Each structure stands twice: as structure tokens, then as C-alpha cells.
Amino acid sequence: MVIPVHDVNPTRRTPWVTYALIAAGFVVFLRTPGMAGSVTGEGGLAQLCRLESFLDQWAAVPRELIHERLPRLVPTGQVGVGPAGPGCLVGPPDYDKSPPLSVLTSMFLHGSWLHLLGNMLFLWIFGDNVEDRLGHVRYLLFYGVCGYAAAYGFAFVNADSGTPMIGASGAIAGVLGAYLALFPRVRVWVLVPFLLFLPLRLPAWTVLGAWFALQAVYSYGAGVSQAGTVAYLAHVLGFAAGMLLAWPLRRGTLPPPEPPGAVWGRRARPGTPWQGQSRPGW
């Protein structure tokens, strides 16, 4: 799997929504019980019980989404001792949870620093150009629609699952699908793990197409030993939703120029062909 680090694709407006989503992801992660001080998100039993209670309240659970009802017993966040030894206590929920709304809150939850940083990296690199093309408001709505499509699609296939779904991966996969539809030939700098890390500049269709193919293979449990711990199918569904939503905008999207002498530049420089001009379809 290649690691994207930069795309040569100037923008004409500041991606405030993308910045806000990234900032919100970090803020929520730092306020998630036990996550801020751990690289892996793992800890003692008391921390695990608090985390289970937190996720049960704020994460999306497939069987709750499909059946529209909450379980009678949920983790309380406290540790107890039973016949099998210490464990997390359960009891009637002391909160009112809306399953549809839990899809929205689950988009800002992550299970580890690696989970968070991986998602935010992809959003940082590819989100600004999709926001630039859609506009701030439409981009925010697009992001939410892709997240909901990924979550509910996964829930329909796993209707009896009680495992909480967390992460912005489904929504960000939608951003990747839109990027592929709008900017398939844009060059993307990636690091390829070969001995150390080999930097290459590849077209977006190669990078994102390979990413989608891996998610599709993993969604069938091939090539990974713990496929059930990651909702790969949600990635596939989010990507497909984003690509379908962005496809009608392809004809109005001009291919971006590559600023001369600014390989790592993000913004359009004065003198580029579309600087100061409007694009068709805006």
C-alpha cells in the first residue's frame, strides 16, 4: 500500500470545511476516554470499560440503525467482579440515543492515533480540491451523505452486528471517490515501502484505484487476518457514493495546471491559466 504525501493540484479558495473537519477529529479524539495518552488506544480494564460505555453511547451500531431500537443493557463504564473475574458492568442505559444521529457522531470518533492520523492524512491531501470544486456548503453536505451511505450500507449487510462503528473512513472514502472522478490525471506524490520508502509521482487514478481495489479485496476478508475489525465494506460503499455524486461535475472541471518550480505548492500561483477566472459549472 502506497502512502500519499502531496498532490500537485492548486486550489483557488481556502478549504475551511476540510480544516474544520480535521480539527474536530483531533478535538474529539483527545476527549475520548483513554485515547489521548495511548498510541494504540489500549489500556487497563477501567479505561476499557469507560471507553466501551462512551462508544456505546456515541458510536453507530448496525443493529440499532436497522432495527431502530436500543439494547436493554449497555456498559455502564464501571468495573465489577463476577464469577468469571473482573469485567465491565452492564445496566439499563441512562441516556437517550438516536441511531440515525449516531452515524454523524461516529464520524468524529477514532480508535487509535494510527486510525486518526491515517484518516486525516487522506482528508488533508484530497479534501481541499473536492471542497474547491463543490464549494464549502455543498462539500459539507456531500461529506455527510457519503458517511451516511457508507454506514447504512454496511449496517444493512451486517444487520445483527452489535459492534460499534467509528471513524470518518466512509465519508473520506467518498472524498477519494469524488477526487478520482474529478481529477483522475492529477499527479500525486506517494511513498512506496520498498526497502525504505521510495518517493514516486503517480497519477491519481493509479493511487486511488489501487486503494479502492485493496478495500474491495479486504471487504471479502482476503489478504488480512483480522478483516472483521475494520469495516472495509463501508470504505467501498463510501467511495462508490462519492464517485457517483461527483461524476456529473466532471465535464465542468478543468484539468489543473502544474505550477512551474513549485512542486510542493498547494495554491495557484499568479499567471497560471485559470488564476482569477471562473470555472464552468460553479
Results as ranks from 00 to 15, higher is better:
residue 153 G to E: 09
residue 143 Y to S: 13
residue 78 Q to T: 04
residue 105 T to Q: 11
residue 146 C to I: 14
residue 96 D to S: 00
residue 154 F to N: 07
residue 66 I to C: 06
residue 110 H to L: 12
residue 118 G to P: 03
residue 112 S to R: 07
residue 98 S to K: 01
residue 86 P to L: 05
residue 58 W to V: 04
residue 82 G to K: 13
residue 63 R to P: 05
residue 119 N to G: 14
residue 100 P to N: 02
residue 98 S to Q: 02
residue 146 C to N: 15
residue 59 A to T: 03
residue 122 F to R: 12
residue 88 C to Q: 10
residue 136 H to M: 12
residue 151 A to P: 12
residue 141 L to D: 12
residue 93 P to S: 10
residue 102 S to M: 03
residue 60 A to H: 02
residue 144 G to Y: 09
residue 87 G to L: 05
residue 81 V to D: 13
residue 61 V to Y: 00
residue 105 T to N: 11
residue 71 P to M: 13
residue 112 S to Q: 08
residue 96 D to T: 01
residue 121 L to F: 03
residue 124 W to V: 01
residue 77 G to K: 04
residue 146 C to W: 12
residue 110 H to F: 15
residue 122 F to I: 07
residue 59 A to Q: 04
residue 128 D to Y: 08
residue 135 G to H: 06
residue 114 L to W: 04
residue 66 I to V: 15
residue 96 D to E: 02
residue 105 T to A: 10
residue 84 A to I: 06
residue 80 G to P: 09
residue 124 W to D: 03
residue 115 H to R: 11
residue 68 E to G: 02
residue 63 R to C: 08
residue 62 P to M: 07
residue 129 N to I: 05
residue 90 V to L: 15
residue 112 S to I: 05
residue 130 V to C: 14
residue 108 F to A: 15
residue 64 E to V: 02
residue 149 A to H: 06
residue 114 L to N: 03
residue 95 Y to I: 02
residue 94 D to I: 01
residue 88 C to K: 09
residue 114 L to P: 01
residue 90 V to C: 14
residue 100 P to D: 03
residue 90 V to A: 14
residue 91 G to A: 15
residue 141 L to S: 13
residue 97 K to R: 05
residue 119 N to E: 13
residue 106 S to E: 07
residue 90 V to P: 10
residue 118 G to S: 13
residue 131 E to D: 11
residue 69 R to H: 08
residue 148 Y to K: 02
residue 84 A to R: 11
residue 127 G to N: 08
residue 83 P to V: 08
residue 62 P to F: 05
residue 152 Y to W: 11
residue 113 W to C: 07
residue 107 M to A: 14
residue 137 V to S: 09
residue 59 A to S: 07
residue 58 W to I: 04
residue 85 G to Q: 10
residue 90 V to R: 15
residue 59 A to P: 09
residue 129 N to S: 11
residue 79 V to H: 02
residue 112 S to Y: 08
residue 85 G to E: 10
residue 67 H to A: 12
residue 132 D to L: 00
residue 76 T to D: 03
residue 132 D to W: 00
residue 125 I to P: 12
residue 143 Y to W: 15
residue 143 Y to P: 14
residue 140 L to E: 15
residue 99 P to T: 01
residue 121 L to T: 10
residue 149 A to Q: 09
residue 143 Y to Q: 12
residue 128 D to H: 11
residue 141 L to N: 10
residue 99 P to S: 00
residue 134 L to P: 15
residue 123 L to P: 14
residue 75 P to T: 06
residue 115 H to C: 15
residue 145 V to D: 01
residue 104 L to W: 06
residue 117 L to H: 07
residue 142 F to G: 15
residue 76 T to F: 03
residue 96 D to C: 00
residue 71 P to L: 13
residue 130 V to M: 13
residue 136 H to R: 13
residue 119 N to F: 06
residue 76 T to W: 01
residue 141 L to H: 09
residue 114 L to E: 08
residue 77 G to N: 04
residue 70 L to D: 00
residue 93 P to V: 08
residue 140 L to D: 14
residue 144 G to W: 09
residue 87 G to Q: 08
residue 89 L to A: 12
residue 146 C to H: 11
residue 98 S to C: 04
residue 97 K to N: 03
residue 78 Q to K: 05
residue 81 V to F: 11
residue 125 I to T: 10
residue 108 F to G: 12
residue 99 P to L: 00
residue 151 A to V: 06
residue 134 L to Y: 11
residue 126 F to C: 12
residue 56 D to F: 03
residue 74 V to R: 11
residue 81 V to A: 13
residue 101 L to V: 04
